[in-house]
Design a binder for these strands. Structure first.
Length: 953
RNA sequence: GCCCCGGUGGUGGAACUGGUAGACACGCAGGACUUAAAAUCCUGUGACCCGCAACGGUCGUAACGGUUCAACUCCGUUCCGGGGCACCA
């Protein structure tokens, strides 16, 4: 009886499905464990071998935990809304709903082929109204909340209104005064009486400055090609992450998430979670906390002050010039008459430069405004410049420049011949700015003689005392743009009554995304929904026509799995209390600053509102590496100096590329001159290449016979391809479909091979070569049960100690390997075990049965099959995980080498649990040791873990 | 430029808290079975040296140096590769 993996896998996949083996109950006496994968965006391209890597790892772990007696939640769903789905739909002329549903269908089929233990009854789709009803609902909670900086948590906006009515906003200043522009002057601070005197519109405008989801005017990343606004993490090097289209800054009315209010808690929370160091670092870099001071400088002959942000107030006596961001409005007010022309020209220049240009070529540019700031301590006048290297969006948009202590300031000073004041003595060499904090200050008046790092506090205290500045913490992180001018997303539960945004009532949810056939944008940069005039008019107002971004649904989906069918709440408190945090979250690093930060913020918010009981969504995060494609190339000779262009397809093998003689023969060169020829590499389907050897016949049939008349210049009778590691993508013909491998070798082989490739966290190019080895292992396992000739060979004989030793060694090792996510060594452990059992001709049920349980997480189908063949009923996952017995691990004594100063070796036989004293006695009696010691006493005898003994003289 | 992570045979990778480096697998070579192939099994496989033999010797984890009885592992310097951030004051 041979190992018929196709039949076995089909049989068990159906059986699992029909018997709902993976259905999870919220009501269990067992301890809970939540294993989550980052849910996929269902792309039209389907799965390639890179996608399931994380899913296989999580599936192994989920099954392992179930065997260990946990009630395991291991769900799967689809991140179905968002930009890519809509782009795909437009490109293929299919409605996003239809294409998304098709793609999901396809994904589901592919996933089921691999034999995952997902509870499909809990599947979620972010584009399902039953799901996004609650996305909208959470949005409303955000809208109706503010962040109370006193209690350090989100609270209902009604509480803020009560505070305003009682004491104005004296204790709760506007969090982000950048929106000052849309409020009337002097509105930023108000008393209770004043608040009451405001009309409804003004009150609403003010409240909008506090809401955790809010609508405001601001500079946003506008992508013309995609026709929408993008969040900062969706823009990479000035182009859109999706599609690589140019992105420009544009002032627009947009919805935002006030994530900046959570900056500190997002940072602190990192200490409580088990993420990789690099992941934590990426997040804290993104948040970008820095502390320093804001200082107001008087401006000569102006009443206005120049406010700068600096982390280095200790360098205040080294300030040789000021730089203001060109975008700041004050530039127009402080420019002197003489400088007006150059300033205006410069402003025009800056405006003409795209974000991309600014990033690509960091030229030193800038002009003098003609005004001077006054150093508050020594009254020295300091020229005020404008330059594009100072960003309007960070800090106050103005800096004090210290050329001796900062490289950028130094280059600027050199470039424009601004004299440099040295306040750090020999630490400054006149060649570059030195940002040290360890220098002792000079030329610094009352700071002279103080080491810089201690001077920082001295200066801040002084300026606070003088009332010209305050201690200040700044963050690089911005509020997240939350609206998209697109169709395929959650509609906002908001209507506009005039200029006031009004939340809909909960009872009006969900706001269902209306069907549209034509997804062209609306007028004035609005989204497609704007074209639906009937839908837009609602209750005497106008609906918000933007939709939410892709990350809205993914910011809370992990909670929905806990209670997927609840139509009263997003997730019952009972369910979220039971399941709590995600114990293990697996996904790629690409979500480090997007999804992970947003979902952490939403979780903290829901926690603040008392809706869930934990404030960090994920206890442990594992990042699976990316599987790259290994592309293959053929080299087509397109022309030669002898013959000119060559139209007939002629390909030259990789190692003959530079073999001019060979090619010369081919073209029967007459001239005797060096023959020049041109080749162009062409991606060839990796599936018709065996290693690097091209299957020439398959190549001729490839692409419906485009190269059917191809000729080849071979080497050793073979055509050898060139290789390169690239992203796995259809367009490089380097994708490998998991279904093909499952068909050829079986899902169990595929699963184990993906794990065997190396640590889950590591990125590596895919290579199918070694899969045979894993397949051989499974066949070998099968032969422990069945022999081709004899049939059944497993028996009920009693296992010997040697056999039990193998078993228990394996139990221990598999438990450790699986627990610490070393699935690659786990697979090796199985191979060793099966090899050893084969050597001993051990076919004993007693041993094999236990081995199957260990194997069940890795290779579920074959384990279930053999488990039932051994006479068990039900699923193997309900079997108890075997316990290893110390007895079998230490009982047999072995010969252990003794190394003496690393030179002489002999062997001793010791029991593993020998005490230090016993060891010493035996060592001292050993013939070689006594000979070597020549009567001397050893300094020490070291008994170390690998059963090796060191004797030191 | 700054910050992380890594560099081990022909290849993917083991070696967890310093303790016989190279597990396991691929590939390769040789052999058995077979009319043949496939499948399966066995043997060898880091480099070099010695030898009738070997459970013999020397070197060897990017390079150099250090700590230690003992270093892939810890420390320092350099080189190379991957990832992240990048005018953030």
């Amino acid at each position: 009886m041979e190992y018929r993996f196709r039949d076995i896998e089909k049989k068990w996949q159906e059986w699992w499905n029909v018997n709902k083996v993976y259905k999870v109950s919220n009501d269990s006496a067992k301890p809970k464990y939540y294993v989550l994968d980052m849910f996929p965006y269902p792309s039209g391209a389907g799965l390639h071998v890179g996608h399931p890597l994380g899913y296989i790892a999580s599936d192994i772990y989920a099954r392992f935990k179930r065997l260990k007696g946990f009630n395991v939640l291991h769900p799967m769903g689809y991140d179905a809304f968002g930009l890519p789905a809509e782009q795909y739909a437009i490109e293929h002329g299919i409605h996003p709903k239809v294409s998304t549903d098709n793609n999901i269908e396809n994904f589901r089929k592919q996933l089921n082929n691999i034999g995952f233990s997902f509870d499909w009854d809990r599947e979620v789709r972010t584009s399902d109204p039953k799901f996004y009803k609650w996305t909208q609902w959470i949005f409303l909670q955000l809208f109706n909340s503010f962040y109370n900086r006193e209690s350090k948590k989100a609270e209902p906006i009604s509480k803020l209104i009560a505070i305003f009515e009682k004491e104005g906003n004296i204790n709760h200043p506007v969090p982000d005064s950048k929106f000052e522009a849309r409020l009337e002057p002097g509105m930023l601070n108000f008393s209770a009486a004043r608040w009451k005197s405001f009309n409804e519109k003004t009150q609403q405008d003010l409240l909008m400055e506090y809401r955790l989801s809010y609508c405001g005017y601001g500079e946003v990343n506008w992508c013309e090609a995609l026709g929408t606004v993008l969040a900062n993490d969706e823009v990479i090097n000035g182009v859109s992450e999706r599609g690589g289209h140019p992105v420009v800054k544009k002032k627009l009315r947009q919805w935002y998430l006030r994530i900046t209010e959570y900056a500190d808690r997002l940072l602190e929370g990192l200490q409580k979670v088990d993420f990789s160091e690099s992941m934590k670092e990426m997040q804290s870099n993104w948040i970008g906390k820095s502390s320093g001071a804001e200082i107001d400088f008087e401006i000569k002959d102006h009443s206005q002050k120049l406010r700068v942000y600096t982390t280095r107030p200790d360098t205040i006596f080294g300030v040789d010039f000021m730089v203001v961001a060109p975008e700041l409005e004050m530039v127009n007010e402080i420019k002197s008459e003489a400088q007006t022309k150059v300033v205006d020209e410069y402003l025009a220049y800056v405006k003409s430069r795209s974000e991309r240009e600014r990033m690509a070529e960091k030229k030193i540019t800038g002009v003098f405004t003609g005004s001077y700031a006054i150093n508050p301590f020594n009254r020295r006048p300091i020229p005020i410049w404008i330059s594009e290297y100072v960003l309007a969006g960070y800090g106050t948009g103005a800096i004090m420049a210290v050329p001796c202590g900062d490289q950028r300031d130094f280059l600027f000073a050199k470039h424009f011949n601004i004299p440099i004041t040295n306040i750090i003595g020999s630490h400054f060499n006149g060649e570059e700015g030195n940002p040290t904090k360890d220098a002792t200050l000079e030329n610094s008046d009352f700071l002279n003689g103080i080491v810089m790092k201690y001077a920082i506090d001295v200066v801040i205290n002084k300026i606070e005392e003088m009332g010209i500045g305050v201690r200040k913490v700044n963050y690089k992180m911005r509020d997240a743009a939350f609206s998209r001018q697109r169709y395929w997303g959650e509609p906002f539960p908001i209507i506009w009554l005039g200029a006031v945004a009004c939340p809909l009532d909960e009872s009006e949810l969900p706001v269902v995304l209306p069907h549209m056939d034509d997804l062209k944008p609306g007028p004035d940069g609005e989204g497609p929904l704007s074209n639906l005039t009937d839908w837009k008019d609602y209750k005497g107002g106008i609906r918000e026509v933007n939709t939410m971004p892709g990350y809205a649904g993914s910011s809370w989906y992990f909670l929905r799995y806990m209670d997927p069918d609840n139509d009263k709440e997003f997730c019952s408190r009972k369910a979220s209390d039971y399941w709590g945090q995600v114990d293990l979250y697996i996904g790629g690093t690409e979500h480090a600053v997007g999804h992970l930060l947003y979902s952490r913020m939403w979780t903290k918010f829901l926690y603040d509102m008392g809706l869930i009981s934990h404030e960090e969504p994920y206890k442990r995060l594992v990042n699976q590496g990316m599987i790259q494609g290994s592309s293959r190339f053929v080299y087509r000779i397109t022309s030669s100096s002898e013959t000119g262009p060559i139209t007939k397809p002629l390909f030259v093998s990789f190692n003959k590329l530079n073999d001019r003689d060979l090619i010369r023969n081919r073209f029967s060169s007459q001239s005797g001159e060096a023959l020049l020829y041109v080749t162009s590499p062409i991606h060839v389907d990796v599936n018709i290449v065996d290693g690097v050897e091209l299957d020439v016949e398959a190549f001729k049939k490839w692409r419906s016979g485009e190269y059917s008349d191809a000729e080849f210049i071979l080497e050793d009778g073979k055509y050898i391809c060139g290789t390169e590691v690239e992203k796995m993508s259809k367009r490089y013909f380097n994708t490998v479909n998991p279904n093909d491998l499952c068909e050829k070798y079986g899902a169990d082989t595929f699963r184990m091979y993906e794990m065997f490739l190396g640590p889950v966290e590591m990125s590596k190019p895919w290579d199918t070569k070694g899969i045979e080895g894993v397949h051989r292992f499974l066949k070998k396992l099968w032969r422990l049960f069945f022999d081709e000739l004899k049939g059944k060979v497993w028996n009920e004989e009693k296992a010997t100690d040697a056999e039990l030793k193998i078993l228990h060694k394996t139990i221990k090792k598999i438990e450790e390997d699986t627990e610490r996510f070393s699935f690659n060594t786990g697979v090796s452990t199985f191979m060793i075990c099966v090899n050893e059992l084969t050597d001993l001709k051990c076919h004993k049920k007693e041993v094999l049965e236990q081995l199957l349980i260990l194997l069940a997480p890795y290779a579920p189908h074959i384990s279930e099959e053999l488990w039932s063949i051994l006479g068990n009923s039900g699923t193997i996952l309900d079997a108890p995980f075997p316990k290893w017995n110390e007895k079998y691990l230490k009982e047999t004594s072995k010969a252990y080498p003794v190394a003496i100063n690393g030179k002489t070796r002999t062997e001793l036989t010791l029991a593993l649990d020998a005490t230090q004293q016993q060891v010493e006695e035996i060592v001292m009696k050993d013939a070689i040791v006594t000979k070597w010691l020549e009567g001397k006493q050893p300094k020490k005898i070291i008994y170390v873990k690998n059963k090796m003994i060191n004797v030191v003289v």
